[in-house]
């Protein structure tokens, strides 16, 4: 989605004048999947918060991204339970198959690969989440199947 200043102003207004900086940034990020430079400047002006503070908040919290993210997110849980059950192998396989490191986005902007510290469904470890869909008891083989399905879906959207 391209950046539209008028829509952003609406988002900020919805939150009221005394809105928390973080809540507003979360809404902006939810809309554009990242925080465009222009958006951060506008948030700073509208909320009366120095741009330096906006930048410090954005770079401090994991949830914010300064670069455009993929249409789909593949998230590998690396919580303790998943770790002791082999989450590292699952992550390695995804990195190899997608050709990106954790935290990066594929060149076609379809997939962003990331890790999360714990999703709290430890009985199913290792867990991978494709967008909102949880996949439990992942193995190297199941990663291949999951990717095949995801790629197929992407192909269908086009």
């Amino acid at each position: 989605m391209d950046f539209e200043p008028s829509k952003l102003a609406e988002t900020i207004e919805e939150n009221g004048a005394g809105a928390s900086l973080i809540s507003v940034l979360e809404k902006v990020q939810a809309r554009y999947r990242y925080l465009p430079r222009e958006a951060m400047i506008l948030v700073s002006e509208q909320l009366g918060v120095p741009l330096s503070q906006v930048y410090s908040v954005v770079t401090f919290y994991h949830a914010f991204s300064l670069v455009p993210r993929g249409k789909h997110t593949i998230c590998v849980c690396t919580g303790t339970a998943c770790h002791v059950r082999g989450a590292v192998q699952v992550l390695n396989r995804l990195e190899t198959k997608l050709g990106v490191e954790s935290g990066e986005t594929t060149r076609d902007h379809e997939f962003t690969l990331e890790t999360v510290n714990c999703l709290g469904c430890c009985a199913l470890g290792p867990v991978v989440v494709l967008d909102d869909e949880y996949e439990g008891q992942m193995t190297t083989r199941k990663v291949d199947k999951l990717l095949k399905r995801a790629m197929h879906q992407v192909g269908g959207e086009r």
Partner: peptide, 8 residues
């Protein structure tokens, strides 16, 4: 803000 990995 339950952040400990392995706790839910």
């Amino acid at each position: 803000d339950e952040g400990d990995p392995g706790a839910f």
